[in-house]
């Protein structure tokens, strides 16, 4: 019997057990056969069997068994040295899409998938397409901080999802005055990684929602191709828009001037601004002076 017909037979047997509600037996059988494939280094068969098995468990609403098989699939990816490819990612995306966003293991599943893409792909923080899907699923499940991390490094579509998430969160806060805290997040996150396109995109998308929703007093300022909204009562929003433009200039004097003008109302952003100062303007972070260390170093002939 050929390998593919054996696999089809195993899957049919497995499917019958699932349909009769014999989940434990189905799970054990599938794992035993998959183990055999792994031991004989028939990795492709093992991958097909495990991923189709996981999918069947997801359809049967057996999240625990499904996530166990997803972790096993990732183990096989690792042992087999499966590199990041459209097919390998698509297989994981398909499973993620079917996974219930309230599944208790969802964060671990996301981490496991991303860790594989970090190890076997060209991106230090993982595959952008995988990030987009993970971010979306985690947001759906209410894991907002984790979702944010993934969406920032996602695809073009992730920007809309990130803004939608922040907007919903802002609405839930029930206080219009908190808008700066929400708006600051995509602006800083995108400036940190040098993504001006998305910083501007987030600015336009988020602020147009805010203007429509709040009817805040505002006025458009346009100069040399740069556009921003001046808000009479929201200095933080003004500052953050100017910050994007300033980072574009890479001019440290302008950066210091901007910070000086808004001093007092941007103290909460000191860490973020310190990082941007270093990254975009070459301003070195001042380390606190340790007098005792300096004296000892001087006595011992060090610097």
């Amino acid at each position: 019997m050929s390998s593919s017909s054996k696999l089809a037979k195993t899957l049919a047997r497995f499917q019958a057990r699932i349909e009769s509600g014999d989940f434990y037996e189905a799970h054990q059988t599938l794992r035993t056969i998959a183990n055999r494939y792994v031991r004989s280094k028939s990795y492709n068969d093992a991958i097909d069997l495990i991923s189709q098995g996981a999918e069947a468990f997801l359809k049967a609403k057996q999240g625990g068994s499904a996530t166990d098989l997803i972790f096993y699939l990732l183990e096989v990816y690792d042992v087999a040295g499966v590199v990041v490819s459209e097919v390998a990612v698509a297989r994981l995306v398909q499973l993620l899409a079917s996974l219930d966003s309230d599944e208790p293991n969802i964060k671990d599943v996301a981490t496991g998938m991303n860790n594989w893409s970090v190890k076997f792909g060209p991106y230090k923080y993982g595959d952008p397409y995988l990030h987009a899907v993970i971010g979306s699923k985690l947001a759906e499940g209410g894991h907002v901080y984790e979702a944010e991390r993934y969406l920032v490094l996602g695809t073009h579509d992730s920007l809309d999802q990130y803004v939608a998430l922040l907007w919903e969160w802002f609405l839930q806060s029930g206080d219009t005055k908190t808008v700066g805290e929400f708006f600051s997040r995509p602006i800083f996150n995108y400036l940190f990684i040098g993504n001006f396109q998305n910083a501007y995109g987030a600015k336009d998308k988020f602020l147009s929602k805010f203007i429509e929703y709040s009817r805040a007093e505002c006025e458009k300022v346009i100069k040399n191709g740069f556009e921003m909204w001046y808000f009479k009562d929201y200095a933080e929003l003004n500052f953050l828009q100017l910050l994007i433009l300033t980072c574009q200039t890479q001019n440290a004097d302008l950066f210091n001037n901007l910070k000086a003008h808004y001093a007092g109302s941007i103290d909460q952003y000191s860490g973020q601004l310190e990082f941007l100062g270093q990254e975009h303007f070459g301003i070195k972070i001042q380390k606190p002076v340790n007098f005792m260390q300096d004296i000892m170093s001087g006595l011992l002939g060090g610097k």
Binding site: Y123, L153, N224
Partner: peptide
């Protein structure tokens, strides 16, 4: 600032393969 902003264009983005630092955690 807008006359000096030509250093980096408004649609510039560091390719993700070159991103090696995510900044500070918010």
């Amino acid at each position: 600032a807008s006359v000096q902003a030509s250093g980096v264009s408004a649609d510039a983005k560091v390719p993700q393969q070159n991103v090696t630092n995510l900044g500070v955690a918010l």
